[in-house]
Design a protein around this nucleic acid. Structure first.
Lengths: 128, 128
DNA sequence: TGACTTACATAGCACCGTCATGTATAGTAC
DNA sequence: GTACTATACATGACGGTGCTATGTAAGTCA
């Protein structure tokens, strides 16, 4: 049985974070699919459990878009692997995605604080 | 012309954040569609510009799922509005979504730091 | 009268993760 | 030597979601 029990993170959140996470990992060092799955799990302390059926299409898309480049290689043990490295375009995209994430994260933090305040809350008055 | 020039945030990120943002806004105070669009814009300093074609289906889905409740009302000026309030289930979902977001955000922050370090980076060694 | 804003709604489209499945091979336990 | 597990990559059907365009209606203001 291929284990699929734990479902911690909803699919929209996975979709939103898969690109910046993969690009950031590859910005650190070249890697390959199977290793990325484990890196993500360790990185999140087990909170995130990506599936291979989700990751490989992501890698193919990133390569199709020119953000990463893949090349076939062989491990010490003789297994074939597809190693990916990030491109200049990929670094630019990572920067853009990071900016977008932080914009949304900043907004979320604001309302989380506001939502937990008693008696409602107000946004900035009106002035321009 | 219905303006659609600015496209700051990618759709996956919008999909991932729309539910927690709407629920958090309604956790602060009751509101309605058109006002939420403006609240989100102000909240993000203009960085996020939701479209009505995206928000209304979100509100309908949240209501269908029991996270919010809608009721028709009328503004001071006589316009009809559909006011929404959050339910107990909605508060629970908000809490869950917030937890998930923070899990992913924590992972992203780690790799962003690591990715900007020279010479790559390593995850916890191997010891099982 | 006409333009703009407020206010809600929906259909067609493309994209993306999920789930199941397929293929192949190295390592390990018996 | 024969299972079984882990490693490693790939894809197709399906459902859900935002995007874009469009429709409807009414209040505001010149």
């Amino acid at each position: 049985m291929r284990t699929h029990e734990i479902m911690e993170i909803n699919k929209e959140l996975i979709a939103a974070s898969s690109t910046p996470i993969v690009l950031a990992i590859l910005a650190g060092e070249d890697s390959y699919g199977y290793a990325i799955l484990q890196q993500v799990r360790e990185l999140s302390g087990g909170g995130m459990q990506w599936t291979d059926g989700m990751l490989y299409p992501v890698l193919h898309r990133l390569e199709r878009n020119g953000y990463i480049r893949g090349r076939w290689g062989v491990s010490d043990t003789g297994r074939r692997r597809k190693y990916y490295s990030i491109t200049e375009q990929g670094l630019a995209e990572l920067s853009e995605q990071r900016k977008q994430w932080q914009t949304v994260d900043a907004a979320l933090r604001k309302i989380w604080v506001a939502a937990s305040l008693p008696g409602g809350w107000t946004l900035s008055p009106t002035p321009t």
